[in-house]
């Protein structure tokens, strides 16, 4: 819809990715009221929804909120308009990654990537690899483990051995899913 441009661009992108219609939101703020991290960033879920409607890219991507969303699904469960708001948060993370707009101070964004790389490579997520990669790239992150880490080690909670899944099948699925997604992206871009 040309009349919505440029503000319609982000909402259309979000809708194309997760089949949700952000314009259904009428700002009742039940999502925000139930959100466990609503007070932890500059924006809260209802504000993100409004910014999506208005095509406010910068407002969303310069804030940390989407990277603090835990995916707890409370917003999705309570939305009176039936919008999968947590799904929209996921879609915004996907768009941010694709368009190089990942927040510079969002260690969770990196953690998701380490996690993805880990299961894509081994067929299963290798917990210790995630922590190790995070420690290499973000030395201050290690501080958070100084007390709990040794306790977990002593209790035998940290299993250093890697148990692989069917790595060939995993690699094939990752490759197909990524190329199919990219092809659709291309298709959508033309329209």
């Amino acid at each position: 819809m040309a009349t919505c441009s440029p503000s319609g661009v982000l909402a259309t992108k979000v809708g194309a990715g997760c089949a949700e219609n952000p314009y259904l939101c009428y700002q009742c703020k039940r999502c925000t009221a139930g959100c466990p991290v609503a007070d932890q960033a500059g924006m809260h879920p209802a504000q993100i929804m409004r910014a999506v409607q208005l095509g406010q890219y910068d407002m969303i991507f310069e804030d940390k909120f989407i990277w603090l969303c835990t995916g707890c699904q409370t917003c999705t469960t309570r939305c009176p308009q039936g919008i999968d708001i947590a799904g929209i948060m996921d879609e915004l993370k996907i768009i941010a990654r694709r368009e190089g707009k990942v927040h510079p101070d969002a260690p969770s964004a990196q953690m998701f990537k380490y996690n993805y790389d880990s299961f894509a490579r081994w067929g299963r997520m290798w917990e210790i690899e995630l922590i190790a990669r995070d420690a290499l790239h973000r030395p201050k992150g290690v501080l958070a483990w100084l007390s709990l880490g040794p306790k977990m080690l002593l209790k035998g909670k940290i299993n250093p051995t890697l148990k692989k899944g069917d790595t060939d099948a995993m690699k094939r699925m990752v490759k197909t899913a990524e190329s199919l997604t990219e092809a659709k992206q291309h298709e959508g871009g033309k329209g």
């Binding site: 993370k93 996907i94 998701f112 299961f119 067929g123 997520m125 099948a169 699925m173 997604t181």
Partner: peptide
Amino acid sequence: PGWECCGNTAAHSINRLLSLALPVN
């Protein structure tokens, strides 16, 4: 036998299709 990771939180915030395909597999 030879189960794979379900993709967890990482997959659905990186590639939606993969996040659905892994558990369906």
